[in-house]
Protein backbone atom coordinates (compact mmCIF):
# COMPACT_ATOMS: atom_id res chain seq x y z
CA UNK A 1 0.00 0.00 0.00
CA UNK A 2 1.32 3.41 -0.86
CA UNK A 3 0.75 6.35 1.39
CA UNK A 4 -0.52 9.63 0.13
CA UNK A 5 2.76 11.37 0.74
CA UNK A 6 4.54 8.82 -1.42
CA UNK A 7 1.99 9.39 -4.12
CA UNK A 8 2.24 13.09 -3.54
CA UNK A 9 5.99 12.92 -3.99
CA UNK A 10 5.83 11.10 -7.25
CA UNK A 11 6.02 13.77 -9.90
CA UNK A 12 3.85 12.06 -12.49
CA UNK A 13 1.20 14.22 -14.18
CA UNK A 14 -2.30 12.91 -13.94
CA UNK A 15 -4.38 12.00 -16.93
CA UNK A 16 -7.23 14.46 -17.52
CA UNK A 17 -10.36 13.37 -15.70
CA UNK A 18 -8.52 11.52 -12.92
CA UNK A 19 -10.45 12.26 -9.73
CA UNK A 20 -8.40 14.61 -7.56
CA UNK A 21 -10.40 15.97 -4.73
CA UNK A 22 -13.71 15.00 -3.31
CA UNK A 23 -15.37 16.80 -0.42
CA UNK A 24 -18.03 14.69 1.28
CA UNK A 25 -20.66 16.04 3.61
CA UNK A 26 -18.28 18.53 5.23
CA UNK A 27 -19.46 20.37 8.34
CA UNK A 28 -17.50 23.25 9.87
CA UNK A 29 -18.59 25.54 12.67
CA UNK A 30 -17.18 28.46 14.63
CA UNK A 31 -17.49 28.81 18.35
CA UNK A 32 -18.25 32.47 18.97
CA UNK A 33 -19.38 34.48 21.95
CA UNK A 34 -22.93 34.55 20.63
CA UNK A 35 -23.10 30.83 19.97
CA UNK A 36 -22.08 28.31 17.37
CA UNK A 37 -22.00 29.65 13.82
CA UNK A 38 -22.57 26.82 11.37
CA UNK A 39 -20.55 28.09 8.44
CA UNK A 40 -20.42 24.86 6.45
CA UNK A 41 -23.37 22.48 6.71
CA UNK A 42 -22.76 19.59 4.39
CA UNK A 43 -20.66 20.51 1.41
CA UNK A 44 -20.23 17.98 -1.38
CA UNK A 45 -18.17 18.65 -4.44
CA UNK A 46 -15.42 17.09 -6.50
CA UNK A 47 -12.79 18.14 -9.00
CA UNK A 48 -10.81 16.08 -11.46
CA UNK A 49 -7.46 16.77 -13.12
CA UNK A 50 -7.79 19.35 -15.85
CA UNK A 51 -11.23 20.36 -14.65
CA UNK A 52 -12.43 23.72 -13.40
CA UNK A 53 -15.08 23.80 -10.72
CA UNK A 54 -16.61 27.17 -9.99
CA UNK A 55 -17.99 27.58 -6.48
CA UNK A 56 -20.63 30.25 -6.53
CA UNK A 57 -22.53 31.90 -3.73
CA UNK A 58 -23.28 35.14 -1.92
CA UNK A 59 -20.72 36.48 0.48
CA UNK A 60 -20.89 34.56 3.77
CA UNK A 61 -22.14 31.33 2.24
CA UNK A 62 -19.08 29.39 3.41
CA UNK A 63 -17.02 29.25 0.22
CA UNK A 64 -13.80 30.45 1.80
CA UNK A 65 -14.23 28.39 4.96
CA UNK A 66 -14.61 25.26 2.83
CA UNK A 67 -11.48 26.17 0.89
CA UNK A 68 -9.52 26.88 4.07
CA UNK A 69 -10.59 23.53 5.48
CA UNK A 70 -9.37 21.78 2.35
CA UNK A 71 -6.04 23.59 2.61
CA UNK A 72 -5.78 22.93 6.32
CA UNK A 73 -5.40 26.62 7.12
CA UNK A 74 -8.64 27.13 9.02
CA UNK A 75 -8.31 29.09 12.26
CA UNK A 76 -8.77 26.42 14.88
CA UNK A 77 -10.05 27.60 17.31
CA UNK A 78 -12.55 29.18 16.80
CA UNK A 79 -13.21 26.91 13.83
CA UNK A 80 -13.73 23.16 14.05
CA UNK A 81 -14.57 20.44 11.58
CA UNK A 82 -17.44 18.44 13.01
CA UNK A 83 -17.85 15.82 10.30
CA UNK A 84 -17.14 14.94 6.74
CA UNK A 85 -14.29 13.75 4.56
CA UNK A 86 -11.90 15.51 2.23
CA UNK A 87 -10.46 12.91 -0.11
CA UNK A 88 -7.35 13.90 -2.00
CA UNK A 89 -6.49 11.20 -4.52
CA UNK A 90 -8.61 8.83 -2.48
CA UNK A 91 -7.11 9.54 0.96
CA UNK A 92 -8.93 11.46 3.67
CA UNK A 93 -6.82 14.50 4.47
CA UNK A 94 -8.73 15.12 7.68
CA UNK A 95 -7.20 11.91 9.06
CA UNK A 96 -3.63 12.82 8.16
CA UNK A 97 -0.96 14.08 10.53
CA UNK A 98 -0.01 17.76 10.44
CA UNK A 99 3.26 16.93 8.74
CA UNK A 100 1.55 14.88 6.03
CA UNK A 101 -0.83 17.73 5.36
CA UNK A 102 1.97 20.29 5.29
CA UNK A 103 3.69 18.30 2.57
CA UNK A 104 0.57 18.48 0.44
CA UNK A 105 0.14 22.23 0.93
CA UNK A 106 1.87 24.26 -1.72
CA UNK A 107 3.22 21.15 -3.36
CA UNK A 108 0.08 19.28 -4.36
CA UNK A 109 -2.65 21.77 -3.55
CA UNK A 110 -1.96 25.48 -3.75
CA UNK A 111 -4.14 28.47 -3.01
CA UNK A 112 -4.54 31.94 -4.46
CA UNK A 113 -6.15 34.52 -2.21
CA UNK A 114 -8.37 37.47 -2.95
CA UNK A 115 -6.22 40.31 -1.71
CA UNK A 116 -2.69 39.85 -3.02
CA UNK A 117 -1.39 42.94 -1.23
CA UNK A 118 -2.21 41.68 2.24
CA UNK A 119 -1.53 38.06 1.32
CA UNK A 120 2.06 38.71 0.34
CA UNK A 121 4.57 39.42 3.08
CA UNK A 122 5.17 43.20 2.93
CA UNK A 123 8.78 43.08 4.10
CA UNK A 124 10.14 40.30 1.91
CA UNK A 125 10.97 40.67 -1.77
CA UNK A 126 8.73 38.82 -4.20
CA UNK A 127 11.79 36.89 -5.35
CA UNK A 128 12.35 35.66 -1.83
CA UNK A 129 8.73 34.69 -1.40
CA UNK A 130 8.63 32.81 -4.69
CA UNK A 131 12.04 31.24 -4.17
CA UNK A 132 11.03 30.05 -0.73
CA UNK A 133 8.86 27.39 -2.37
CA UNK A 134 11.91 25.80 -4.01
CA UNK A 135 14.18 26.28 -1.04
CA UNK A 136 11.81 24.67 1.43
CA UNK A 137 10.24 21.95 -0.69
CA UNK A 138 13.12 21.10 -3.00
CA UNK A 139 16.18 22.15 -1.03
CA UNK A 140 17.25 24.57 -3.75
CA UNK A 141 20.11 26.99 -3.08
CA UNK A 142 19.48 30.72 -2.86
CA UNK A 143 20.83 31.19 -6.35
CA UNK A 144 18.78 28.40 -7.90
CA UNK A 145 15.68 29.64 -6.08
CA UNK A 146 16.16 33.14 -7.43
CA UNK A 147 16.64 31.88 -10.98
CA UNK A 148 13.47 29.84 -10.67
CA UNK A 149 11.62 32.82 -9.23
CA UNK A 150 12.56 34.88 -12.28
CA UNK A 151 11.44 32.03 -14.53
CA UNK A 152 8.08 31.92 -12.74
CA UNK A 153 7.62 35.67 -13.02
CA UNK A 154 8.28 35.33 -16.74
CA UNK A 155 5.69 32.58 -16.96
CA UNK A 156 3.00 34.80 -15.53
CA UNK A 157 4.18 37.54 -17.87
CA UNK A 158 5.54 40.08 -15.44
CA UNK A 159 7.59 42.47 -17.57
CA UNK A 160 11.31 42.73 -16.84
CA UNK A 161 11.17 39.88 -14.34
CA UNK A 162 14.93 39.76 -13.81
CA UNK A 163 15.02 43.42 -12.80
CA UNK A 164 11.97 43.20 -10.59
CA UNK A 165 12.74 40.03 -8.70
CA UNK A 166 14.12 41.95 -5.73
CA UNK A 167 11.21 44.37 -5.56
CA UNK A 168 8.69 44.28 -2.76
CA UNK A 169 4.94 43.62 -3.12
CA UNK A 170 3.96 47.28 -2.64
CA UNK A 171 6.04 48.22 -5.67
CA UNK A 172 3.78 46.26 -8.02
CA UNK A 173 0.33 47.11 -9.36
CA UNK A 174 -2.68 45.10 -8.17
CA UNK A 175 -2.78 42.98 -11.30
CA UNK A 176 0.94 42.27 -11.17
CA UNK A 177 0.68 41.31 -7.50
CA UNK A 178 -2.06 38.83 -8.28
CA UNK A 179 0.17 37.41 -11.03
CA UNK A 180 2.83 36.91 -8.39
CA UNK A 181 0.30 35.06 -6.23
CA UNK A 182 -0.52 32.89 -9.24
CA UNK A 183 3.17 32.27 -9.86
CA UNK A 184 3.61 31.25 -6.24
CA UNK A 185 0.73 28.79 -6.47
CA UNK A 186 2.12 27.44 -9.72
CA UNK A 187 5.69 27.10 -8.46
CA UNK A 188 5.71 23.40 -7.68
CA UNK A 189 3.19 22.50 -10.39
CA UNK A 190 0.51 21.31 -7.98
CA UNK A 191 -2.32 18.97 -8.96
CA UNK A 192 -4.93 21.38 -7.72
CA UNK A 193 -5.20 25.12 -7.32
CA UNK A 194 -7.87 26.77 -5.22
CA UNK A 195 -8.41 30.37 -6.27
CA UNK A 196 -10.54 32.28 -3.75
CA UNK A 197 -12.02 35.26 -5.57
CA UNK A 198 -8.74 35.89 -7.41
CA UNK A 199 -10.01 38.87 -9.36
CA UNK A 200 -12.48 40.47 -6.95
CA UNK A 201 -9.94 42.99 -5.64
CA UNK A 202 -8.76 44.01 -9.11
CA UNK A 203 -9.78 46.74 -11.53
CA UNK A 204 -12.34 45.53 -14.04
CA UNK A 205 -9.85 46.03 -16.86
CA UNK A 206 -7.27 43.67 -15.39
CA UNK A 207 -9.78 41.11 -14.09
CA UNK A 208 -10.13 39.48 -17.50
CA UNK A 209 -6.36 39.38 -18.08
CA UNK A 210 -5.70 37.66 -14.77
CA UNK A 211 -8.58 35.24 -15.31
CA UNK A 212 -7.34 34.36 -18.79
CA UNK A 213 -3.85 33.77 -17.51
CA UNK A 214 -5.12 31.48 -14.79
CA UNK A 215 -7.27 29.50 -17.22
CA UNK A 216 -4.42 29.22 -19.69
CA UNK A 217 -1.93 27.95 -17.12
CA UNK A 218 -4.48 25.53 -15.72
CA UNK A 219 -4.99 23.98 -19.13
CA UNK A 220 -1.27 23.91 -19.83
CA UNK A 221 -0.41 22.12 -16.60
CA UNK A 222 -3.59 20.02 -16.63
CA UNK A 223 -4.36 21.07 -13.07
CA UNK A 224 -7.65 20.87 -11.27
CA UNK A 225 -8.96 24.34 -10.42
CA UNK A 226 -11.50 25.36 -7.83
CA UNK A 227 -12.54 28.87 -8.68
CA UNK A 228 -14.42 30.56 -5.88
CA UNK A 229 -16.44 33.59 -6.82
CA UNK A 230 -19.62 35.47 -6.15
CA UNK A 231 -19.63 36.79 -9.69
CA UNK A 232 -21.56 34.68 -12.19
CA UNK A 233 -20.10 36.67 -15.05
CA UNK A 234 -16.58 35.48 -14.31
CA UNK A 235 -17.29 31.77 -14.50
CA UNK A 236 -19.14 31.26 -17.77
CA UNK A 237 -16.01 31.22 -19.95
CA UNK A 238 -13.62 29.29 -17.76
CA UNK A 239 -15.53 26.78 -15.65
CA UNK A 240 -16.50 23.24 -16.61
CA UNK A 241 -19.00 22.83 -13.82
CA UNK A 242 -20.53 24.90 -11.09
CA UNK A 243 -21.40 24.26 -7.46
CA UNK A 244 -23.81 26.81 -5.99
CA UNK A 245 -23.54 27.37 -2.25
CA UNK A 246 -26.14 28.75 0.09
CA UNK A 247 -25.83 29.01 3.88
CA UNK A 248 -22.97 26.54 4.02
CA UNK A 249 -24.53 23.93 1.73
CA UNK A 250 -24.17 23.01 -1.90
CA UNK A 251 -27.65 23.61 -3.28
CA UNK A 252 -26.98 22.82 -6.90
CA UNK A 253 -24.24 21.36 -9.07
CA UNK A 254 -24.28 21.22 -12.83
CA UNK A 255 -22.13 21.48 -15.94
CA UNK A 256 -21.74 25.19 -16.54
CA UNK A 257 -23.86 25.60 -19.66
CA UNK A 258 -26.69 23.44 -18.36
CA UNK A 259 -26.82 25.48 -15.19
CA UNK A 260 -27.12 28.69 -17.17
CA UNK A 261 -29.71 27.24 -19.50
CA UNK A 262 -31.90 25.39 -17.01
CA UNK A 263 -31.29 25.86 -13.29
CA UNK A 264 -32.82 23.23 -11.01
CA UNK A 265 -32.85 25.30 -7.81
CA UNK A 266 -34.85 28.46 -7.10
CA UNK A 267 -31.77 30.14 -5.58
CA UNK A 268 -29.73 29.56 -8.73
CA UNK A 269 -32.64 30.84 -10.76
CA UNK A 270 -32.67 34.01 -8.69
CA UNK A 271 -28.92 34.47 -9.06
CA UNK A 272 -29.17 34.13 -12.83
CA UNK A 273 -32.01 36.61 -12.99
CA UNK A 274 -29.99 39.15 -11.06
CA UNK A 275 -27.14 39.29 -13.60
CA UNK A 276 -27.28 42.61 -15.43
CA UNK A 277 -27.95 41.98 -19.12
CA UNK A 278 -27.47 44.27 -22.08
CA UNK A 279 -30.96 43.62 -23.51
CA UNK A 280 -32.54 44.72 -20.24
CA UNK A 281 -30.77 48.04 -20.08
CA UNK A 282 -32.74 50.61 -18.18
CA UNK A 283 -34.89 48.11 -16.34
CA UNK A 284 -34.58 47.61 -12.61
CA UNK A 285 -32.21 44.82 -11.73
CA UNK A 286 -33.82 41.78 -10.18
CA UNK A 287 -32.72 40.99 -6.63
CA UNK A 288 -33.57 37.95 -4.55
CA UNK A 289 -35.77 39.19 -1.73
CA UNK A 290 -34.55 39.05 1.86
CA UNK A 291 -31.10 38.47 3.26
CA UNK A 292 -28.83 35.44 3.67
CA UNK A 293 -29.59 33.66 6.95
CA UNK A 294 -27.84 34.30 10.23
CA UNK A 295 -25.49 31.34 10.62
CA UNK A 296 -26.18 31.22 14.35
CA UNK A 297 -29.81 30.45 13.54
CA UNK A 298 -30.17 28.77 10.18
CA UNK A 299 -33.90 28.34 9.32
CA UNK A 300 -35.34 24.87 9.83
CA UNK A 301 -35.93 22.81 6.72
CA UNK A 302 -34.53 24.33 3.55
CA UNK A 303 -32.32 27.26 4.61
CA UNK A 304 -33.56 29.20 1.59
CA UNK A 305 -37.28 28.88 2.41
CA UNK A 306 -37.83 32.41 3.84
CA UNK A 307 -36.61 33.87 0.54
CA UNK A 308 -38.15 31.29 -1.79
CA UNK A 309 -41.24 32.20 -3.85
CA UNK A 310 -42.45 28.62 -4.15
CA UNK A 311 -41.73 27.33 -0.64
CA UNK A 312 -44.20 24.79 0.75
CA UNK A 313 -44.77 23.47 4.28
CA UNK A 314 -42.39 20.63 3.56
CA UNK A 315 -39.68 23.20 2.85
CA UNK A 316 -40.08 24.66 6.32
CA UNK A 317 -39.63 21.35 8.13
CA UNK A 318 -37.49 19.00 6.11
CA UNK A 319 -33.97 19.66 4.81
CA UNK A 320 -33.98 18.71 1.14
CA UNK A 321 -31.49 16.03 0.09
CA UNK A 322 -29.07 16.73 -2.76
CA UNK A 323 -31.27 15.03 -5.37
CA UNK A 324 -29.98 13.59 -8.60
CA UNK A 325 -31.59 15.65 -11.34
CA UNK A 326 -33.28 13.93 -14.27
CA UNK A 327 -34.85 15.08 -17.51
CA UNK A 328 -38.56 14.96 -18.28
CA UNK A 329 -38.38 11.29 -19.20
CA UNK A 330 -36.69 10.41 -15.95
CA UNK A 331 -33.21 9.91 -17.42
CA UNK A 332 -30.52 11.05 -14.99
CA UNK A 333 -28.55 14.10 -16.06
CA UNK A 334 -24.86 13.50 -15.46
CA UNK A 335 -23.32 15.76 -12.82
CA UNK A 336 -26.58 17.49 -12.05
CA UNK A 337 -27.87 17.67 -8.50
CA UNK A 338 -30.25 19.96 -6.68
CA UNK A 339 -31.02 20.37 -2.98
CA UNK A 340 -34.63 21.39 -3.54
CA UNK A 341 -37.82 19.50 -2.78
CA UNK A 342 -39.33 21.05 -5.87
CA UNK A 343 -36.42 20.58 -8.27
CA UNK A 344 -38.68 19.00 -10.87
CA UNK A 345 -41.05 21.94 -10.87
CA UNK A 346 -38.12 24.36 -10.94
CA UNK A 347 -36.37 22.61 -13.81
CA UNK A 348 -39.29 21.62 -15.97
CA UNK A 349 -42.13 23.84 -14.85
Amino acid sequence: MTTVTEKADSGERLAPGTPLLEVRDLHVEFVTRDGIAKAVNGVNYSVAAGETLAVLGESGSGKSVTAQTIMGILDMPPGRVTSGEILFRGQDMLKMSNEERRKIRGRKIAMIFQDALSSLNPVLSVGYQLGEMFRVHQGASRKEAKAKAIELMDRVRIPAAAQRVNDYPHQFSGGMRQRIMIAMALALEPDLIIADEPTTALDVTVQAQVMDLLAELQAEYNMGLILITHDLGVVADVADKIAVMYAGRIVETAPVHELYASPAHPYTKGLLRSIPRLDQKGQDLYAIKGLPPNLLKVPAGCAFNPRCDIATDLCRTEIPALHQVADKDGAELAGRRSACHLWKETLHG
Binding site: R102, G106, M111, F113, N121, V136, M184
Partner: peptide, 12 residues
Amino acid sequence: DYVRTAVAKGLP
Protein backbone atom coordinates in the same frame (compact mmCIF):
# COMPACT_ATOMS: atom_id res chain seq x y z
CA ASP B 1 -3.18 37.23 5.58
CA TYR B 2 0.50 36.89 4.75
CA VAL B 3 0.99 34.47 7.66
CA ARG B 4 -1.91 32.40 6.32
CA THR B 5 -0.20 32.46 2.91
CA ALA B 6 3.03 31.23 4.49
CA VAL B 7 1.14 28.31 6.02
CA ALA B 8 -0.64 27.63 2.73
CA LYS B 9 2.77 27.43 1.03
CA GLY B 10 3.50 24.38 3.16
CA LEU B 11 6.33 26.05 5.07
CA PRO B 12 7.33 24.36 8.33
